[in-house]
Computed example of a mutant assay.
Amino acid sequence: MFFDSNAWPPAPDGRGPPPRPKLTRAQEDHLLRMIGWFVLVMVVGPFAGSSVIAAVMALLGSGGG
């Protein structure tokens, strides 16, 4: 079956498709920091163990943003 993504029906007032939601700069920075922490934990975790990661997070104030 073929799906035509350009066949979106226009809105009743003729504006077209709804706008895509965008992240603010602060939300984008927070998301990138979270991804960075998760990658770091994934790399260091197997070597350090979960207790060391929990201690580092406790020292850093659990990264509450």
Rank of each mutant, 00 (worst) to 15 (best):
G45I: 00
R15W: 07
V39K: 10
G61T: 08
P21L: 01
L32I: 07
A55L: 04
F2I: 11
S5R: 11
M42G: 06
L31R: 11
Q27N: 01
P18L: 02
A58L: 08
W8N: 08
R33E: 01
D13Y: 02
K22C: 13
R25D: 10
A11S: 07
V39D: 11
D4P: 15
M42P: 05
M1T: 03
V44D: 06
P9I: 05
R20E: 15
D13I: 03
S62M: 11
L31I: 11
H30G: 05
M1L: 09
M1Y: 05
P19H: 03
A48D: 03
F38N: 06
M1D: 06
W37M: 14
W37Q: 07
A55P: 05
V52S: 02
E28I: 14
G49Q: 00
W8Q: 10
A26Q: 09
W8S: 01
F47A: 13
P10R: 03
A55E: 07
F47L: 11
L60D: 14
P17F: 02
L32F: 05
P9Y: 01
S62R: 15
P18H: 00
A58P: 05
G64S: 15
R15E: 10
G61M: 08
D29C: 08
G64C: 14
M1C: 04
T24I: 02
L60E: 06
T24K: 02
I53G: 08
G64W: 13
Q27A: 00
R20S: 10
H30L: 15
S51V: 04
G14R: 01
L23E: 12
M34K: 13
I53P: 06
F3I: 10
A48F: 04
D29I: 12
E28R: 15
R25N: 00
M1R: 05
G65Y: 15
V41N: 12
L32V: 10
D4F: 13
D4T: 15
V52D: 03
F38W: 10
V44M: 07
R15T: 14
G49M: 03
G63E: 09
A7F: 03
W37I: 12
Q27R: 01
